[in-house]
Amino acid sequence: MRLTAVAYGLLALFALGVPLLGIYPVFMMQLLCLAMFACAYNLLLGFGRMLSFGHAAFFGAAAYATGWLVTAHAWGPGAAIVAGVVVAGLLGLAVGALAIRRQGIYFAMITLALAQLVYFVCLEAPFTGGENGLQGVPRGKLLGFLPLKSDVVLYYVVLAAFVAVFLFIRRVVHSPFGQVLKAIRDNEPRAISLGYEINRYKLLAFVLSATLAGFAGSLKALVFGFVTLSDVQQSTSGEVILMTLLGGTGTFFGPVVGAAVVATLQQYLSDLVGGWVIAIIGVVFVACVLSFRRGIVGELAAARWLRRAPPPR
């Protein structure tokens, strides 16, 4: 327990000191957005055992909504982020309501199909900029006074948002609702036999996950100043699965580690090997599934747990 506290402390110091350490803040912001996205995904997969193949739809739809409102309607960044999050939540409600009627691979296929639908809407709609996406999204001033144009200011805003989401997910998992969600994850028929209408709980989990994924997407739109089709694309849905599995599903910090590894590989390896980075990430993924299924954080936690106490008889 103390080791974890020390690790979190060091990490917090590092995160606060990033602008002083000469690390490119935009890269760190990208990492934080991806980490937030992965944490949101993990809420669904790790604690609700629902495998979505379409989470980019929520991430991307929120990014488009925020980007469009800021660019075409001159909304402030705060209101535009809230709007993006609401769009993602409503979309999550619609997709979730259909998908939770099925389980396992069928659930995944429904999310995939509906996400493709969202992708085509983003491609064809008159306000999304088609193949070009939305370019030149201004960052504006948060609450009318915080100039987000400065990378350092925006970095701290994104960091604060990430920490808030991280703590929020912890709370959700450790809430009365979280208890029921874990029970449903563990044994659906048993939860039903105890009187729970399990679909309502699954739907709430789905909407929460979609909403937080949307928050990550909205922030990303402001960080980069553009929104493109890649934000709603199938490959982005795949990437978030990869980050979550690599880091460790059902652990709190796993998705953050997964996002950091994937983002770092993409950032630094692509300079060295170009397009091969996709192949390398693929190999890493296969290695993860074959040899450390619990993910990086999951395996570390399991190793620590084994050393600590033998199971009771």
Binding site: R171, H174, S175, F177, Q179, L194, Y201
Partner: peptide
């Protein structure tokens, strides 16, 4: 926690994702 899941519904907070589980 297993037993508590069965008792929990009576509290009417099973959808309360913002509350801490210490309330259980």
């Amino acid at each position: 926690e297993n037993v508590r899941i069965a008792l929990q519904r009576a509290l009417g907070t099973t959808f309360h994702f913002w509350r801490h589980q210490a309330t259980l």
